[in-house]
């Protein structure tokens, strides 16, 4: 039974990590129907920004709490700037192009950003400072679930909640939903669609930056390629949960994480990905729009 709980917690952590990235994916898709493959790279850039800021601040001996706050804010701003720029450069000119065109453009952006960081920074793995301290009250259960696991879980839950509230109840959220439903109609009722889409990218990138900070601190190392695998897994999770749906992204991520964890624990880690993707295939056969997704015809 202990073993089951341990695996369950491992799965939850992994799921929450996927969810932090998947939320941004699913949100952008939900609003403008674009699979933003560069999202994993925005997450990676968030992690790099956090790394640089945290390293500099710790050299000057700032207290940990201050470092976390300043690092978080600067990573969020920097990543959002990247997200905003990527949208303006790679997606906006293609807004009326066929659906596949921005998709290819997104993949191109992803490759560009990876190689840009590779050249501008380094190809080595860098040690990411431990920004989440080991809480004393977690010590009795540290062998099952760590402090960083807890922080990631809580952050994911809060992000999901805030994002849902934001989209449901704020003016900007309403404008986003209107844009998602019908871009032309939204324009006609006086919504500045360009601004709404930019805002969507900024919020999505902000989430990715927070993810980058927490996940890098949990793993303890970063390099230019971390965004790719994390992005693919998060994308899978978002599709599993029903892409476009915010609770769906979290649900899909948790299911994916748990499946991988139990597959490793009870079968073999050699087949971890086999189980994860078999599950995806199964769910898509029986529910093509994902677990919580609305059936939506005509989207890639």
């Amino acid at each position: 039974m202990d073993y089951f709980i341990e695996l369950f917690c491992s799965g939850l952590t992994r799921g929450a990590i996927y969810a932090l990235i998947a939320l941004g994916y699913t949100m952008v898709y939900g609003i403008i129907g674009l699979i933003n493959f560069a999202h994993g790279e925005i997450y990676m850039i968030g992690a790099f920004t956090a790394f640089i800021v945290a390293t500099v601040l710790s050299i000057y001996g700032f207290p940990l709490a201050a470092i976390v706050v300043v690092t978080g804010i600067s990573a969020a701003i920097w990543s959002s700037a990247y997200g905003y720029t990527v949208e303006k450069i790679a997606y906006k000119p293609l807004r009326n192009a066929p659906r596949l065109t921005p998709l290819i453009s997104a993949i191109g952006m992803s490759i560009l950003l990876q190689n840009y960081v590779l050249l501008a920074q380094t190809s080595d793995f860098l040690p990411f400072p431990e920004l989440i301290p080991e809480f004393a009250f977690m010590e009795p259960v540290a062998h099952i679930i760590g402090s960083s696991d807890l922080v990631i879980l809580v952050t994911t839950a809060i992000s999901m909640l805030l994002l849902t509230l934001f989209i449901k109840f704020t003016r900007l959220g309403k404008a986003m939903r209107a844009t998602a439903q019908d871009k032309t109609m939204a324009l006609l009722v006086g919504i500045n669609v360009d601004r709404v889409i930019s805002a969507t990218f900024i919020v999505g990138s902000l989430l990715a930056a927070i993810g980058g900070l927490l996940i890098a601190s949990h793993i303890g190392q970063i390099n230019f390629a971390i965004g790719f695998i994390a992005g693919i897994k998060a994308f899978t999770a978002a599709v599993l949960g029903g892409i476009g749906s915010i609770p769906g992204a979290v649900l899909g991520s948790l299911i994916l994480g748990l499946t991988e964890s139990f597959a490793t624990g009870y079968v073999s880690s050699d087949y971890e990905d086999v189980f994860a993707f078999s599950l995806l295939v199964l769910i898509l056969i029986f529910k093509p729009s994902g677990l919580l997704g609305r059936a939506n015809i005509g989207k890639v």
């Binding site: 073993y3 695996l7 491992s10 952590t13 992994r14 996927y18 695998i229 964890s261 880690s269 050699d270």
Partner: peptide, 20 residues
């Protein structure tokens, strides 16, 4: 005797298995 996937975000499950 097991293989892990390089680049995975988290290795806690395999670590629990080693412990087990």
């Amino acid at each position: 005797f097991e293989g892990v996937t390089p680049g995975a975000v988290d290795y806690s499950a395999i670590v629990q298995k080693i412990k087990q």
